[in-house]
């Protein structure tokens, strides 16, 4: 440890009390709406295949595993929660720790608190309404009230702040656009990585243009960034299919990510396998597919929307903190 005060919490006691009040308010919000709190395992035999997410791995040895078994710390509780939905749970939520290797910085801690919830019968627009009700309610109660809320598509957002259509522009167009906006060269970023160029423009150009103290709900992402969202075929007059996914941004922070959930088991398996193929080309380990999830989708997932919200980041906003460390009793460097 660097200094003799490193045993002390990084967050003030006042912030820790605010954290407790925030958690209580979240539970109250869902209790009044009849959403059931659930608790699913942190350790799993399967893991997220997303090439951009890196699971911590550990090892179990003992009864039922004489030769030992690898286990993964979950990056979100999505898979077991969907199994509960398929089993008829109705609307559910969970507050818990999730783990992401390689993520540490001003907005990131390798373990963090995620609020995740699922609403059978909702699409992503109906769920955005509920996210807005929750977030404005929480930030309103004695805290910083966001000035306003805006809802716009990913395409409209990009057009507004970069002048480019993110659905039709080529990787070379996106690189040119990044140059024109002063982002400059990014060594090692090739034109094969179109989505990474979109991420670059989003983080370096689009998000910094957002007005402070304003909720931005951004929806209908490129199909290539669908993750676990449904893909909607192009309607007449539209150029391409879109992912029914949304994110919430406020003060430059990505606060929540939601999907109108993919329920097609065959399509889900194809996406997992495509992720693993990408992992192989990138030299990343492939991940065991979550077969119980696929079996649950086979059985039938009710049409639903789900969203994950970073509780520590919400606390950052409520407490006016500049770094995630200020909201954690013991951030990574003190853990």
């Amino acid at each position: 440890m660097k200094s003799s005060s490193a045993w002390k919490p990084a967050a003030t006691l006042e912030t820790l009390r605010l954290r407790a009040r925030l958690l209580a308010a979240i539970r109250e919000f869902f209790a009044t709406r009849g959403v059931l709190e659930v608790d699913t395992p942190v350790l799993s035999h399967a893991a997220s295949t997303d090439p951009q997410l890196h699971s911590f791995t550990t090892h179990y040895s003992g009864p039922d595993a004489p030769d030992g078994a690898p286990l993964f710390l979950h990056t979100s509780p999505e898979f077991p929660m969907k199994r509960l939905l398929a089993a008829g749970s109705g609307p559910i939520y969970q507050i818990g720790k999730v783990f992401r290797n390689g993520e540490c910085g001003r907005w990131h801690n390798p373990e963090f608190t995620l609020l995740e919830w699922y609403r059978p019968g909702f699409d992503h627009h109906a769920l955005m309404d509920e996210v807005e009700a929750l977030v404005t309610g929480l930030l309103d109660s004695g805290l910083k009230q966001p000035a306003a809320s805006e809802r716009l598509s990913y395409g409209a957002l990009f057009l507004r702040h970069t002048g480019i259509d993110p659905h039709t522009a080529s990787a070379a167009d996106l690189r040119e656009c990044a140059r024109a906006h002063g982002v400059g060269e990014v060594p090692g970023l090739t034109l094969d990585e179109r989505d990474a160029w979109l991420d670059l423009l989003l983080t370096h150009t689009v998000i910094p243009c957002m007005e402070p103290q304003r909720l931005y709900f951004v929806y209908d992402y490129p199909a290539s960034q669908a993750a676990l969202a449904r893909i909607r075929p192009p309607s007449p007059g539209q150029a391409c299919a879109l992912a029914e996914r949304f994110e919430l941004f406020i003060n430059g922070i990505e606060l929540a990510n939601g999907f109108h959930e993919l329920a097609d088991s065959a399509e889900q398996r194809r996406r997992f396998e495509r992720d693993n193929a990408r992992r192989q080309t990138q030299g990343l380990p492939t991940m065991p597919l979550d077969e119980p999830l696929l079996a649950a989708l086979d059985h039938g997932l009710p049409p639903c929307a789900g969203v994950a919200l970073g509780v520590d980041r919400l606390l950052m906003l409520a407490a006016g903190a500049g770094t995630i460390s200020e909201t954690l009793a013991f951030p990574f460097d003190r853990a």
Partner: peptide, 14 residues
């Protein structure tokens, strides 16, 4: 050195 990463996207160091 700032770590920047969209939840489901490419991580960058700015």
């Amino acid at each position: 050195n700032e770590f920047v990463k969209p939840g489901k996207g490419q991580a960058f160091n700015r």
